[in-house]
């Protein structure tokens, strides 16, 4: 709107606003990147432009701690969470979006209300469950517990997507005598890729970023996921926080995420707003 008002003062004001917003949005990560390339005492000098290009921080996080293993854990957990959530979400979406039965609306509301659970409210119960199942200090425990975040929105978004598909496809297939399972895998699945990419990505991001469960349900360095590994990077003492290494680790786990989000920008935005607007 603003750009259409042609008075020069308004134009300058608008571009100034854009510039200030861009600095606020982008500077923190930019600053993390340039900090991560500094070594030794250079880190304590404030520079606004890249001042050094030392990869020391990057090599040392892999050499001095099992950061490679942490990345692998995060990947395994996130991919498994995406897979399980999509399977459970798709089967439920077929039932909720394509079948009429009593309690369907109540069921959707119940699923949605789970997304309002505070994490600490299930912490002790989940801790007990994970111990009983022998999944403590094990990525399996995280995969299980993360379903509490991913199932509600997966079911919700996939259900509203499958509901909006035309009725004819299904009717033709039923006429040919297709069983529900065939219906799901042969007819609906190929049409649902857009919604699956959206929900899959959101589930991946949630699992990749989760902190509290990962902090509570893992114990040893080599079982941790990256968020906890980053939060627990410490120096020799309280006064020697290795900021360079923390920033290097942060950059490593964030760059792929930013790339994913920018590549799938439209899908993610539509998923976020659809979940919220319909919720």
């Amino acid at each position: 709107m603003a750009a259409r008002h042609t008075s020069p003062a308004a134009k300058i004001g608008f571009w100034l606003l854009v510039a200030v917003l861009l600095v606020i949005l982008l500077f923190p990560f930019y600053y993390a990147v340039i900090t991560s390339f500094k070594s030794g005492s250079a880190i304590f000098e404030v520079d606004y432009l890249p001042a050094a290009l030392s990869a020391g921080n990057y090599t040392s996080i892999f050499a001095e701690q099992p950061f490679g293993r942490n990345i692998l854990n995060s990947l395994v957990v996130s991919v498994a969470v995406v897979g399980i959530s999509l399977f459970l979400g798709l089967t439920a979406a077929l039932a909720l979006g394509r079948f009429r039965f009593k309690g369907r609306r109540m069921m959707l509301l119940a699923v949605l209300s789970v997304s309002m659970f505070p994490q600490v409210a299930v912490l002790s119960g989940m801790f007990e469950l994970i111990r009983v199942l022998g999944l403590f200090n094990n990525p399996g425990g995280l995969i299980l517990s993360y379903l509490i975040f991913t199932l509600p929105f997966t079911v919700w978004v996939l259900t509203s997507f499958i509901r909006d598909l035309p009725a004819e496809v299904e009717e033709a297939a039923i006429m040919d005598g297709a069983k529900p399972w065939t219906l799901l895998t042969r007819i609906f699945l190929p049409m649902m890729w857009p919604a699956m990419v959206t929900t899959g990505l959101l589930a991946f991001i949630v699992a990749w970023n989760e902190f509290l469960f990962a902090l509570t349900f893992t114990l040893s360095n080599d079982q941790r996921t990256v968020p906890v590994a980053i939060a627990l990077i410490t120096g020799g003492s309280e006064f020697e926080v290795p900021w360079g290494r923390i920033m290097a680790a942060s950059v490593i786990v964030t760059v792929p995420l930013i790339a994913l989000v920018l590549i799938f920008q439209r899908r993610i935005v539509s998923g976020l707003t659809a979940g919220a607007v319909k919720g």
């Binding site: 949005l25 968020p227 939060a231 964030t254």
Partner: peptide, 18 residues
């Protein structure tokens, strides 16, 4: 979208440093 894409742990650490 970039601040949204950054994990909370990372944004908290970044700002703690800044």
């Amino acid at each position: 979208l970039i601040p949204w894409a950054i994990p909370t742990v990372v944004s908290a650490k970044m700002w703690a440093w800044m």
